[in-house]
Design a protein around this nucleic acid. Structure first.
Lengths: 361, 361
DNA sequence: TTGTACGCGTTATCAT
DNA sequence: ATGATAACGCGTACAA
């Protein structure tokens, strides 16, 4: 703890440790001549304080720049007016539009409710669980928002076990019970729509780039793919499936493997837009034209999809709104009110752009 | 405060208020038979605790899932291991890649130092300053990171006055002293490079879409524009300048105005990529071809720039790394160490892509 | 090696 | 209408 100013010899440069003494209730009490109790209640707007006294106290507080110490408040009130979110710490260059959009929605909405948002970037694994324990068990946040659920997600188990308010972007994996508040897009139907779109365009050899197996929605998206082939009477071929790590690089690698081993493939469905953009690069590097030689589709409809080259056919997810609605859900739960909505599955919306190409002969 | 489980009649749905009793030092003391002090010091790794006692206490803590109460710790230690950042609350649809990238860099880096990041989304103005006071004055964060400085920025004045550790993405506006730790790209040189690029391509009528006047870097970018024209011996024309709000929409409107009133314009420099992308849309809506009829350039080199249609010529800013370096700076200051670097101006890097077109006849 | 006692700043209960 | 007091959970000076 640095307590006084430190300048390191550089003049006119503000490298101070915290130098201001905190103005506290005690100071206001001393200045105004009232007790700490009265000052506290005057500021809190209690009705049993003389109006003149209150004005005097408020004015003094303003002049001295009094700001309540949040740590003390939290300790006393057992609540922090803060929502927590743990996002995947990612190495440079994987720009992740999905989380950005979600966080924007969460941040904007939380501020309307006068909540702040505490972010911790962590790699999945033990460090990540430790971060959860620090935020949740350490009473730093009143509620949590999770995204990108995994199979047998230990974070959800932990939050359920503790009975801590939370809301989730995404359901549990197929076969597990989603007995918690969530918002998810019906991604099985979404992938089915994409595959059917390609089938209508006369494609018969459609590759699929799935997320890692432990991601909860992988199962749904895989099922959507098989379902579409089944209804069309087409055989499912194991070799048309690869997994990617949800980044551009993952999509690039996946598409390269698919095309190298199955040159007959004319369409690739990637399970998110980032991988689809990577797949487009791979196709172009192979000297093929996206939308003409090989059609591509993604999932999410992040802003970059619209501005891709060619623009990307995809499934739209209202990510920003999902963030807003998750905030409302978790705040309702925190306040002990029944949330207006609890388990939401949104219908997918197909956005057709140039990357999927025209009908093939 | 809800203290017990609440189920609202929906079975199997975890809508509980905080139901777990917090395990505290007192509990560990009771369980192990030692005093709170000894437990506290055993956990903190003090050397004057019997090794067996320590093992016993640590094991009990593990079994009971003890997590220190952060509010109590903060109150006691007067520090929060948290960095604060206030970002502009934005309406839906302005996806803002710059802040996303910066936050990723900040979040990833902060987690390496075991710091969390507290985000508050606020509209510039009184609410925003109130948020600063809440975080800084309320001792919720040990340090602040600011971005997009403004003229006579009240946030900086506040932080300087309080002597609170902070670091800034961006300098003060021209004519003001930047007597604080910051990292900025030399945007005057950056814009000059873009304009010179167009001059070399034989453009003579170059429009400029500036940010709002109160944004600190507006002055630098404007000066870069004039400087380039001056060295080329070209007259500066007031009507070639418009202001936009740094969003896609702002760029769209700005380009539309420029082209409507000055049909002779053959190139447009926008002061960030988002506005450049908007300008491209405006040009295309007017039935013109970007890069052929009208060249376009942006600033920032956000991921979307590369994937734009056509890809966007721009000035690269290493936004993610800037976020990382700002974290290091502010944490050094918090710890009372002289920061390794304090006032950094990065050289701009010109990235030429298709949107600026080929040489004109 | 371990325990007692106090304070961090706030709010709530209970008197007066 | 106002004030004294306790408590939230933790960490540390001091005592034993």
């Amino acid at each position: 703890m640095t307590l006084g100013p430190k300048r390191f010899g550089k003049r006119h440069l503000y490298f101070l440790g915290s130098s201001f003494m905190q103005v506290k209730l005690k100071d206001l009490a001393r200045m105004t001549g009232y007790s700490i109790t009265t000052v506290s209640r005057a500021l809190a707007g209690y009705s049993d304080v003389n109006e003149q006294t209150r004005q005097h106290i408020i004015e003094t507080a303003r002049q001295l720049g009094y700001v309540p110490n949040q740590a003390a408040r939290q300790l006393r009130n057992q609540s922090s007016a803060t929502l927590g979110m743990i996002i995947p710490a990612i190495e440079r260059s994987f720009s992740n539009d999905f989380f950005s959009q979600l966080m924007q929605g969460i941040g904007d909405s939380a501020s309307l409710y006068h909540y702040d948002v505490l972010i911790s970037a962590q790699h999945p694994g033990e460090e990540e669980m430790a971060a959860y324990r620090r935020l949740v068990g350490g009473y730093r946040v009143d509620g949590m928002i999770l995204a990108r659920t995994r199979q047998h997600d230990p974070r959800i188990a932990y939050l359920k076990e503790r009975g801590h308010p939370f809301a989730v972007s995404g359901r549990a994996a197929p076969g597990e019970v989603s007995d918690f508040p969530y918002i998810d897009v019906d991604s099985q139907a979404g992938i089915r729509m994409l595959v059917e779109h390609f089938l209508e365009l006369n494609h018969r050899h459609i590759g699929l780039i799935l997320p890692p197996p432990d991601v909860a929605y992988t199962g749904y998206r895989f099922e959507g793919y098989r379902e579409a082939l089944r209804s069309a009477g087409l055989a499912y071929r194991q070799e048309y499936i690869v997994h990617g790590d949800l980044t551009r690089v993952g999509g690039f690698d996946g598409a390269q493997r698919l095309l190298a081993q199955n040159p007959e493939i004319t369409a690739i469905v990637a399970c998110n837009d980032l991988m689809a953009l990577g797949a487009m690069s791979a196709i172009q590097s192979a000297g093929l034209r996206v939308g003409e030689d090989v059609g591509v589709a993604g999932f999410d409809d992040v802003p970059a999809a619209e501005y891709a080259h060619p623009p990307l056919t995809t499934i739209h997810q209202p990510i920003y709104e999902i963030g807003q609605r998750l905030v409302r859900m978790v705040i309702d739960i925190i306040k002990g009110q029944p949330p207006a909505e609890t388990q939401v599955v949104l219908p997918p919306v197909l956005i057709v752009r140039a990357s999927s190409g025209l009908r093939r002969r």
